[in-house]
Amino acid sequence: MSITNLLENWSDFRHQHPSEDRPHLEYKWAMSIDLDSCTGCNACSVACYAENNLPVVGKEKFAHGHSHHWMRIERYWDNDGREFADQGAQFLPMLCQHCESAPCETVCPVGATNHTADGLNSQVYNRCVGSRYCNANCPYKVRYFNWYDYPTTDNVWPAPMEQQLNPDVTVRGKGVMEKCTFCVQRLTVAKSDARTEGRLVLDGEVQTACQQVCPTGAITFGNLVDPLAKVGKQWMQQQVDLNKDKQAKDAAEDAVKLRGYRILEELRTYPSVMYLEQLRESAI
């Protein structure tokens, strides 16, 4: 990038989402997670380990908070002082929210994390210097740092375990930040296949690893720009607008409510993951 280029195209470089006047062109990857379907079984989390070469750090490092679960299942209790959690738990699969206005992106000193044209919050491992500012500024704390050099750490991938590693995904060395990529390696393949055939990626053509494995189908993933995509229909039906930080749900006082929401939306991160509230029967 020459200085001239930089100056001439400055508005392009500084262009940020969300914005109404410059919508996404072909793709805007987004997700919705139905918390009423999620059973907290952890299949998505293990699938993510398998797909994305996540290191198993072992008990000691886990105890120090060095775990690498891009997809983590949080379990909340809501027993309000009652003796038992008699309405069950609230499970929440938490992954990178791929915020449209991502707090992590603005603070990275080297631009290692930035927004792609199709609305992903990407992490460039090669560029990362490991300042960890992105994690510091991430309200969801879904960024995971390579505190050690896992490829050379004992019992992380002892031979022949390394043969399982997915060749489509970088194995990260020490000192870089990593996080959920929405399985960008799968997206890339799908997009390139579609491009070869002169079309766009169809809904359902590409799945993230967590979505693919989920036994209850709680996770929907797709292209928000595609009017036929299920994820877009869900967002629309739940009246969740990518570009707003307050949704219709919060305003509605009617009897029938919507259950789509985004976590910590009030921080104006404009996440790309919509959650659907868990339901509980009141007749019992």
Binding site: L35, E74, R75, Y76, W77, D78, A85, Q87, A89, Q90, F91, L92, A255, V256, K257, L258, R259, Y261, I263, L264, Y275, E277, Q278, L279, R280, E281, S282
Partner: peptide, 19 residues
């Protein structure tokens, strides 16, 4: 622990409130 500390993270509503 399992508390959300009053923050809107994992939400739950009665099923008769939605269609």
């Amino acid at each position: 622990g399992g508390s959300q500390m009053g923050r809107r993270i994992a939400l739950r509503i009665p099923s008769n409130k939605v269609n």
